[in-house]
Amino acid sequence: MAKPRRITLSTNPKKDELAKLSLGDVIYLDGTIYTAREGVYKRSLEDQVSLPVDLPKRSAANFHCSPAASMNSNGSFNLGSVTATASFRFSKWIGQWLAQTGAKLIIGKGGMSARDYKQHFVPNGAIYLTTVGYGTGALLGRGVERVSGVYWHSELGLAQAMWLIDVKQMGPFMVESDLLGNSLFERENKKIAEGIGKLYEGTKPATLKRYGETDNRSDELI
């Protein structure tokens, strides 16, 4: 069985470093990552509150995650396990975010659509890294050196706050999209789809269909 390639990447990667990556490569990160998800996107892009950190200078790696963490009474943080959340939900903000913050690495769970990659990632020279598992939180936690800042905690809560985390050999992650906008998940889905038809042999659609399964509002359901 072929083992995937293992590569170390900076959280402010150069274009030629990204260009060398192939779908399915296994990545470990050095540098600083930040978390930003619906709370940060909404506050920054819709409510137009200016960002509390200088991006992409501090980091060009946006992790769709909120860590399992708690705050100590002296204001320091107790950080345990780190795991991504599903990224497709952030599609409506991602184009503007990439353009404004210069993010080159979007890290999360499940990837985004090839349409998002072509429309938003490719023009901004960004790629998507997926976490592995997706539950490798303890392994990712080992890559955390320290929390270098937590911003907008009082406004958004711990889970939605913007965390800046210094990391060393944090991983594993996997290259889901490349600079051309190809998607590993879509490639795999295509392969799997070929065999699905025969599994359904002998079954018929449910007696009662569900309104809203298609966009045709005049569909009969029986």
């Binding site: 795991t83 539950g135 490798t136 303890a138």
Partner: peptide, 19 residues
């Protein structure tokens, strides 16, 4: 990677998954 992660979680007394 998952099997490794379970070990890491136990050794570090850290949650298996961040969610």
């Amino acid at each position: 990677a998952m099997l490794e992660n379970y070990e890491a979680a136990k050794q570090d007394r850290s949650a298996m998954c961040g969610d």
